[in-house]
Design a protein around this nucleic acid. Structure first.
Lengths: 336, 336
DNA sequence: TTGAAAGCGTTACCAC
DNA sequence: GTGGTAACGCTTTCAA
């Protein structure tokens, strides 16, 4: 593990006690400015690098914030991650990231690993977890923040939105513009719980508007991609000709579907409206631009960061833990 | 930090010594199967969670692999990350990730933070670093692997490819198909060193083919997006009409550019060929599909994982450190 | 196969 | 403003 220079060595080199070295490396500690400079120089001469493990161990404070994300390659989760990082700038918190690939078993593995590092708090993307995960979290009594969902049985804090509710914005818009026969294009399985929620939201909203049953089209196992969207359209062209609108689980899927529809000679939105979800860049750059839902991924990161600071500072730790609800918005594009 | 159950408590509960508990939690250690079961039950009863910080501290082995990535929202870096994670499955290594936003100063901050956790090794995406970063890494004597580049002055191990060389595949293809007047669309600044290398590669290859000077079109500060590509085309339509081909720094930029070109009534590839870089999904789904370079992001992750295992196991640590070179390939699409 | 003792590098606590 | 002492929870080392 490289160098073995410790505070002891720096202390000797600087002619002070290890305690003074320790203080010199803290922001606020009371150390004479001259002494601090002396220590700093000694440390530089010896190539001393602070040992955060020893600090964590002694101070019983890890400085880690555990975070799980379903995917690393997703503009929305990336935006939440970035906003969270920015909101925590100035603290000494370090993110410890686990990518779950939308799977609860992988989430469980990561949570186990995270807990062994004694994080100050844990942020879980999504509100669906294994029993073992819930058990571990409750035993450790670590503050938990679930984001990107409004779980019916939250573990602790929540910063999220209703995926089903967001989809009703889309269906309201379609119904209002005279589209009656809707299709939904999403994953085959329910690995991605948020995708499943969106499907449920579409069905419910359609029924509320008195529209015929929504035609469910399957694009393969989650997470579904542009290509999956295109392939699904190729496979279901016959059924699609009878529809007024195709509601897609995400913008990439919507884009893939749109490309395939155009290849098959269908005009969007003339023959068929298409909608996406997530306000990905592709939605504004595609031709036609895609009607979509902006879920406020960045806002989720901001609010989560603020909540983490509060929780760790001890404020609000024992509050009512009322879920923080973010309001998604409809971004109307040319595709509907 | 939650529960305070230690091995001591588990030992008392199970009626054995702490040492036996410690051994029971290791894979290979020699513990009677019955004893181990006893310990496991006691641990479960008490809700004991292993403390990796204490282990790290005592064993002087962190189990961390430090990794920096320029961006979290990029299919290629995500693929490298995923492949690296898979290649390290079965080890007890935990990735400690730092996102640099393509900036050496942010990389320096992350490296400083990573080193304080005493990682077993550090993987840096990109071959360009601040002096302070290089200094810290050399002082700590931590194994370093630079990936996604072939640095002229590598710190340690290297798994990468030549960005300039990859671009010559594109220019060779364009020259062969009769395109003579080339433009390059990329970032204004050189924050993204790999983008700058690609630009250099295009210029050199064009000159080698005896083509006229490459027209440089600027799409704004790195990283450049779909929208940046589209905006740049809007801004430079006059110059573009004189070109045979537009070489873009990445697939998203190429797609944005293509959308804008079509809006302006230019036909791709009839009036103008367009090429991208990175084999993003958009390249195969766009219409027309985009000619691009597959850099082998996954292969980089695989090879890096294998190298990390070797380096940590002590094998190859003092080898000649010959750079591992990955060979990018041209994927011809309909856009050229 | 199991146990006892020592100590990893830092900081909380108390003294001056 | 500075220093001495003890301790955080585990594993290395040695002994039984």
């Amino acid at each position: 593990m490289g160098t073995k220079v410790t505070m002891r060595d720096v202390a000797r080199e600087a002619g002070v006690s290890p305690m003074t070295v320790s203080r010199a490396f803290k922001q606020d500690a009371s150390v004479n400015a001259a002494t601090r400079a002396l220590v700093q120089q000694a440390a530089d001469r010896l190539g001393y690098v602070y040992d955060a493990t020893a600090q964590t161990f002694r101070a019983q404070r890890s400085g880690f914030l555990g975070v799980t994300l379903p995917s690393i390659n997703n503009a929305n989760f990336a935006a939440t991650h970035r906003a969270l990082t920015l909101a925590l700038a100035g603290t000494d918190l370090q993110l410890l990231l686990g990518i779950t690939n939308y799977r609860v078993d992988e989430e469980e593995r990561h949570v186990r690993q995270l807990l062994a590092r004694r994080p100050e708090a844990i942020v879980l993307t999504g509100g669906h977890h294994s029993d073992a995960t819930r058990k571990m979290l409750s035993v450790m009594e670590v503050p938990v923040i679930e984001i990107w969902d409004l779980p019916s049985d939250p573990i602790g804090h929540v910063v999220g939105f209703s995926n089903a509710g967001a989809m009703s914005l889309v269906v309201d818009h379609l119904a209002t513009t005279g589209r009656r026969r809707l299709g939904f294009l999403g994953a085959t399985d329910d690995t991605d719980k948020r995708g499943a929620e969106r499907r449920r939201g579409v069905a419910e909203a359609a029924s509320r508007h008195g529209l015929p049953d929504v035609l469910l089209l399957e694009a393969g196992p989650a997470p579904v991609s542009m290509s999956d969207g295109a392939r699904a359209v190729d496979a279901h062209m016959d059924k699609l000709r009878g529809l007024d609108a195709l509601v897609c689980v995400s913008d990439p899927v919507a884009f893939g579907a749109m490309m395939a529809l155009q290849r098959h000679g269908l005009c969007v939105p003339g023959d068929l409206a298409v909608t996406g979800f997530g306000a990905f860049e592709i939605a504004r750059v595609a031709c036609p631009t895609i009607t979509t839902i902006d879920v406020g991924a960045e806002t989720i990161g901001d609010l989560t960061g603020a909540l983490v600071r509060d929780v760790i500072a001890g404020r609000g730790a024992h509050h009512a833990r009322k879920p923080v609800e973010v309001r998604p918005g409809l971004l109307r594009g040319e595709s509907s």
